[in-house]
Simulated scan of single mutants.
Amino acid sequence: MLDKLSEENIEQRLLHFPDWYYFDNALHAEFEFDNFKDCFSAMSRIAFECEAQNHHPEWSNVYNILKITLSTHSVNGVTKKDFKLAEAIDAIVIPEDE
Rank of each mutant, 00 (worst) to 15 (best):
P95Y: 09
V62W: 14
E7S: 03
D34C: 03
N9E: 15
F40E: 06
E87Y: 15
N54F: 12
F31I: 03
I94L: 10
I46R: 02
I10R: 04
H28Y: 10
Y63W: 15
H55V: 00
P95T: 09
A29W: 07
E8W: 02
H73L: 13
D3M: 11
D24A: 14
K80L: 15
E98K: 08
E87A: 12
H28N: 05
E96Y: 14
K4Q: 08
N61F: 08
W20P: 10
A86F: 13
E7L: 04
A26W: 08
S6P: 00
I46D: 00
V62I: 14
I94R: 03
H55S: 00
K81M: 11
I94G: 07
S6F: 08
L2A: 07
D90I: 09
C39G: 08
N9R: 10
D97W: 13
L5A: 00
K81E: 12
V75W: 07
A47E: 04
A86V: 09
Y21W: 10
F40C: 02
S71Q: 11
Q12L: 08
L70A: 03
E96I: 11
R13Q: 08
I46H: 06
P18Q: 04
S74I: 13
V62D: 09
E49A: 09
W59T: 02
D38T: 05
K81L: 14
K4H: 02
A29H: 06
H56E: 06
I68W: 03
C50E: 12
L15W: 04
K4E: 11
A52K: 13
H28K: 03
N35V: 10
V93E: 03
T79G: 00
F17K: 00
E98Q: 08
A91Y: 15
T69G: 07
E11F: 06
M43A: 05
P95N: 10
M43T: 03
F17S: 00
P18I: 05
T79I: 05
F33A: 07
H56S: 03
F40K: 04
T69Y: 09
T72P: 01
S60E: 04
F40W: 14
W59Q: 01
N54G: 06
N61L: 04
W20G: 05
D34F: 08
V78Q: 02
W20A: 02
D82R: 01
C50Y: 13
F17H: 01
M1A: 12
N54Y: 15
D34E: 15
H55G: 00
G77C: 07
E96R: 06
W59I: 02
L27N: 04
D97G: 10
L27Y: 13
Y21V: 00
L14N: 07
P18S: 00
M1L: 12
W20S: 04
A52D: 11
E7A: 05
D97A: 14
S6R: 01
D34L: 12
E49K: 12
E30D: 04
E51Y: 11
I92G: 01
E32D: 06
R13T: 04
V75Q: 00
A91E: 15
V75G: 00
L15D: 03
A42M: 02
K84H: 15
L15F: 10
N9L: 15
W59H: 03
K4D: 07
